[in-house]
């Protein structure tokens, strides 16, 4: 049997990759993709725990989480469209009005 830690480790790896993407990439689209990656790593965690404790609640929550991810992506893309209309591009490191 595969130990639970392996699933969790895979999930942590996915999360860190998403984190690296958020910190490194400039493009807004890639940012949203990375956020999806992080969310899905969390889903993986939920399903893994659900299986290894023999309950179904975790899987229900994974479904909720997927629905919320859809909502988040929709809002995110809408925001980026609004930004695109103003700036003609979605470069995050140029959106630095909120500084000193």
């Amino acid at each position: 049997m595969i130990p639970l830690s392996f699933y969790l480790g895979l999930s942590a790896l996915l999360f860190s990759i998403g984190l690296f993407g958020i910190m490194y990439h400039k493009s807004g689209i890639r940012l949203i993709m990375c956020i999806e990656l992080m969310l899905n790593s969390a889903n993986l965690n939920l399903v893994a725990f659900s299986s290894y404790t023999d309950t179904l609640d975790g899987q229900v929550f994974a479904l909720f989480s997927i629905a919320l991810a859809a909502a988040e992506a929709a809002i995110g893309f809408a925001i980026f469209m609004a930004i695109y209309k103003m700036h003609e591009k979605i470069n995050l490191d140029e959106l630095n009005l909120l500084r000193w």
Partner: peptide, 17 residues
């Protein structure tokens, strides 16, 4: 110290993590 406030979201995320 105000130089820390770059206004770039990614920097803030990196610092938080």
């Amino acid at each position: 110290l105000k130089r820390l406030q770059t206004g770039v979201v990614q920097t803030y995320a990196a610092v938080v993590v």
